[in-house]
Design a protein around this nucleic acid. Structure first.
Lengths: 214, 214, 214, 214
DNA sequence: CATGAATGAGCCTTCATTCAT
DNA sequence: AATGAATGAAGGCTCATTCAT
């Protein structure tokens, strides 16, 4: 794919090249999240990035490779966000769960285009990126499921709850609410969104762990 | 859109023609839900439907009109499902809500392709079908919000809950869980999916309304 | 390749379509024989044939398929020519050989573009058409080799002669002379070319079989 | 063409540079003979030569200039071969002709890629290298024609033979047989190829001059 | 002397659409 | 009511060439 990696595998990428790639990433996320992959042309992406069309091919090898690289770039950001969501001092899985959900909302607020793009492609099982996207999703939901399992072990959840499905449910809830927020009421403060989600999870957790309580 | 309706408005559609349209609908939902609108060609749709390409244009006028007709066809089905979800004898909004969520899961189980297609297009704000899709979504979420409002009025929800956001959350939860079920564990009985969702909503509703309880 | 063959395999090709294909063939042979495959664009071919570019793809599926079809179209013509070269009354293999060589010269005179095109591609072993071209060549040389074998059996050739190599030699001789004739002295009558070739073969055949002798 | 020769005409080419040029020549002949000029990219040539793409431009100025230089490099080798083919002591034109044909076969055996490349381009009259190639061909055939003229003057050929056409015929015969040998039976010793050609020419020369005879 | 990142013209190909039959 | 041959605009991709380093 990447020519440089073939001919001189271990040379670090030149800073000029790295800057070009970043500009292309930023142009691509926005356009694709708005219009979709198929409706976004390479011409458009290159123009918005301020480079020639050939540069896309020089740097990524093709449109679909750019898209794949984009998603990997995105997953790195998501992983970073989730990793830092739970304070290392936090030992209560309930509080940790609330912190993770909050981090999810904030991630979507900050990387809205990326989130839209991932969600839009999530349900097409026959796309070439299906595996990549499923991987990202699994990783994110996995963090939630682990916390649910910890809660279950602590006897704080109904013992017959399917934590896999529940994780998927919480994930869907957070993403949907967050994107609806960005779409319909982008001016509302993130606190209000987070408070609503916490309310809903509170009941489910059987006990009040809301960070809004004193 | 429909040429015949222009030239001979009151003649009923011939059964031959109606059969052709139905075959095209079925071919289109499947292909588009799998590959996306942009990646599905009129050629493909016509071939799968077993008709010539020109027939698509004769019957619908174009690719995007076929897609629009498809979504309208889908929304009719969704409306029917939701309308029939709550037994007319049911007066408790909690039980009604659970019934609606169950209907949602079952709808997705039965019209998986349609659901995928709608979800995939939901988050692209710059598409020409954005309005149509938003309308469908608003309608479906509206049913949920109404019940949440009824619950709030009955004092069964925290008074400060934003029922609009909560409706969106429940919608996202149901759709995500249901599609994950179809994607990853299609053989599980719908009962298990429904039970999990009910568990999660139970706590939120503050009282047990699960249909599984005696 | 051919869409029609997929959907309705046994329907005869429409005469309109057949006419279009023929025009494309004629445009393509000329242009490719002059400029080469790589230097001839589909645009050029379509324009010379007086059709739209898409028509090439509708009829052949692609540039390389057009080229392959072209060569098969050509080989049919060559086969016809060689089949009719030897009068059915002719029983002497020497006279038959001379008749075949003459037919070869005449074929090249009449289908010069096709001959150039085949010769130019003959020596590139890594092309996708290598097999097709080799097949054509083998077929043509095969006719010569059979006659040489008959002559050998009749004791009219040195017994240690490798008729395979000799066939290749005669083939190369005829093609080279004929194309040089078309290139450098196109106004010379075909008789003079044929006479020269016959002179050269006469000696080799060990006996005079020239058709110019009484 | 050569930048250095413009700026510092009399400085000998550095050995580093000369080595680079040679590697590029060798990469180019092979690739172009296999795939053709149009299907061989500068990238490919540079990669096979183990240099960066820019180096091709630094050394030759462009792709077509590299190709031209390649052919000139080839013609030098062919000229050398033919010049040395006839022992200076040889005065019999028949024996000299056989020696020249043998030299041709050996040249092709040793410079197969170059020979393929020249042959493939020989018949496209509209290429920019047409003149260069015709020149090489004329030079090679000229050697043969001169010997044929000598034989004719000595009364050893039919007086009405067109030695120009006959030279072309012998040239085509040798090249075709030699390349078929390399393509289909590369393991056969060159002697067998040469013997067959000599047999064929013997009859034509009217007298036995085969080098295999004692 | 050599490099490799960037360029953009030109190409092959796809595909929604038209229309004569 | 349906067909399929033809179209041409649009898009992805290749590649010879340039140039700053």
């Amino acid at each position: 794919m990447d020519r440089m990696s073939v001919s001189t595998p271990n040379r670090p990428m030149s800073s000029r090249r790295e800057a070009t790639r970043k500009r292309l990433f930023e142009a691509a996320v926005t356009l694709i999240s708005e219009q979709g992959y198929g409706a976004t042309s390479v011409d458009e992406i290159a123009e918005r990035a301020g480079v020639a069309k050939g540069t896309v091919y020089y740097n990524f090898g093709g449109k679909s490779e750019l898209y794949t690289a984009l998603m990997e770039w995105g997953v790195t950001r998501l992983a970073d966000t989730l990793r830092d969501a739970v304070p290392s001092a936090e030992t209560d899985p309930g509080r940790a769960l609330v912190a993770v959900l909050r981090a999810g909302v904030e991630f979507i607020g900050e990387h809205e285009a990326l989130a839209r793009l991932l969600m839009a492609e999530t349900w097409r099982t026959h796309q070439v990126w299906y595996t990549t996207i499923r991987h990202i999703r699994t990783k994110a939901i996995g963090v939630v499921i682990e916390l649910l399992d910890a809660l279950a072990e602590a006897g704080r959840l109904r013992p017959d709850l399917d934590t896999g499905l529940a994780g998927s449910a919480l994930f869907g809830m957070v993403v949907t609410v967050a994107l609806d927020w960005r779409t319909l009421q982008p001016d509302r403060p993130v606190e209000e969104i987070h408070a609503t989600l916490t309310h809903m999870v509170d009941g489910f957790l059987g006990t009040t762990v809301s960070p809004m309580d004193p």
